[in-house]
């Protein structure tokens, strides 16, 4: 794995191999919804995500896995810290009809 691990809390994301959709690691598998993601808040959790990342790095149902930092909002939902990941979580900001935002399940994440 290249580079340093980003700061906690962490989420593991990737692109679905078949359709390129943004997916998140749930602890047991992959899901299209950020709310289903396993959020690592401590060293043990981070190591678990790193192990999952290493496992799919060369193959498997997803492509290009990586970790990113989130903040937990008052309700406990994860919100990505960086705008790049917020855009990735929502879909193109110029086409609200496409991407996860079109499924209207992301009311807690906005730019």
């Amino acid at each position: 794995m290249a580079g340093k691990r980003p700061a906690l809390p962490l989420v593991l994301s990737a692109s679905d191999l078949l359709d390129g959709d943004v997916v998140f690691h749930t602890g047991a598998g992959w899901d299209r919804s950020l709310s289903a993601a396993l959020v690592a808040t401590d060293e043990a959790g981070a190591q678990r995500l790193e192990a999952a990342l290493a496992e799919v790095e060369s193959g498997g149902p997803v492509a290009e896995p990586f970790l990113f930092t989130v903040t937990l909002d008052p309700s406990g939902a994860a919100v990505p810290n960086h705008y790049r990941e917020r855009i990735r979580v929502c879909g193109p900001t110029v086409r609200h009809d496409f991407g996860p935002q079109a499924r209207e399940e992301l009311s807690h994440v906005s730019l």
Binding site: S15, D19, G20, D21, V22, A63, E64, I87, R88, G91, P92, F98, G99
Partner: peptide, 10 residues
């Protein structure tokens, strides 16, 4: 073959 993997999709 001209296929990229982008932010939200291929």
């Amino acid at each position: 073959n001209g296929l990229y993997l982008q932010l939200h999709a291929y």
